[in-house]
Simulated assay, not measured.
Amino acid sequence: MNYRTLGKTGLKISEISLGTWQVGGKWGSGFDDKKADEIINTAIDNGVNFIDTADVYESGLSEKAVGRVVRSRSEDIYVASKCGRQINPHVNEGYQPDVLQKFVEDSLKRTGLEALDLIQLHCPPTDVFYRPEIFERFDKLKDQGKIKNLGVSVEKVEEAIKAIEYPNVNTVQIIFNVFRQRPKELFFKEAAKKDVGIIVRVPLASGLLTGKFDSNTTFNAEDHRNFNRDGAAFDKGETFAGIDFDKGLKAVDELKKLFPGQENLAPIALQWILQFKEVSCIIPGASSVDHVKSNLSVFDLPTLSQDKFQAMNDIYEKYIKADVHQRW
Results as ranks from 00 to 15, higher is better:
Thr217Asp: 10
Thr218Tyr: 03
Ala205Leu: 11
Ile198His: 00
Arg201Leu: 08
Val196Gly: 04
Glu222Pro: 06
Thr217Glu: 08
Thr210Gln: 11
Arg225Thr: 03
Val200Thr: 05
Ser206Glu: 10
Thr218Val: 12
Lys212Gly: 11
Pro203Glu: 09
Val200Ala: 06
Gly207Met: 04
Ile198Tyr: 04
Val202Ser: 08
Thr218Asp: 07
His224Arg: 14
Thr210Ser: 13
Asp223Trp: 07
Ser206Trp: 02
Thr217Ala: 07
Ile199Val: 13
Asn216Asp: 14
Arg201His: 12
Arg201Ile: 12
Glu222Lys: 13
Pro203Thr: 08
Lys212Ala: 15
Gly207Leu: 06
Ala205Val: 07
Ile198Ala: 01
Ile199Ser: 02
Ile198Gly: 02
Val200Asn: 02
Glu222Ile: 10
Pro203Met: 09
Asn216Lys: 13
Ala205Trp: 01
Asp223Thr: 04
Thr210Val: 07
Ile199Asn: 01
Phe219Trp: 13
Ile198Leu: 13
Phe219Arg: 09
Lys212Thr: 13
Thr217Gly: 04
Thr217Phe: 00
Ala221Ser: 15
Leu209Lys: 05
Leu204Gly: 02
Ser215Trp: 08
Leu204Asp: 05
Gly207Asn: 08
Lys212Val: 06
Val200Arg: 00
Ala205Tyr: 07
Glu222Val: 11
Leu209Gln: 03
Val196Glu: 08
Lys212Met: 12
Asn220Trp: 02
Ser206Val: 03
Asn216Thr: 15
His224Asn: 14
Val200Met: 11
Asn220Tyr: 11
Leu204Tyr: 05
Arg225Leu: 12
Gly207Cys: 02
Gly197Glu: 04
Asn220Phe: 10
Arg225Phe: 08
Pro203Trp: 02
Pro203Ser: 12
Gly197Thr: 06
Glu222Leu: 15
Glu222Gly: 14
Leu208Ala: 09
Thr210Phe: 07
Thr217Asn: 02
Leu204Glu: 05
His224Ser: 14
Phe219Glu: 10
Thr210Asp: 06
His224Phe: 15
Arg225Asp: 01
Ile199Ala: 05
His224Thr: 14
Val202Pro: 00
Leu204Val: 10
Gly211Ala: 09
Arg201Thr: 09
Pro203Gly: 09
Leu204Trp: 03
Leu208Cys: 11
Asn216Trp: 04
Ile199Arg: 02
Leu204Asn: 03
Leu209Arg: 05
Asp223Asn: 05
Asn220Ile: 10
Val196Cys: 09
Val196Arg: 03
Val202Ile: 15
Ile199Gly: 00
Leu204His: 07
Phe213Gly: 09
Phe213Lys: 07
Lys212Ile: 07
Ala205Gly: 11
Ala221Trp: 11
Val196Asp: 06
Val196Asn: 02
Ala221Gly: 12
Glu222Trp: 07
Ser215Leu: 11
Leu209Ala: 11
Val202Phe: 11
Ile199Asp: 00
Asn220Lys: 12
Arg225Pro: 00
Lys212Pro: 07
Ala221Arg: 14
Phe213Trp: 15
Lys212Arg: 14
Thr210Tyr: 01
Thr217Pro: 04
Leu208Ile: 07
Thr218Phe: 05
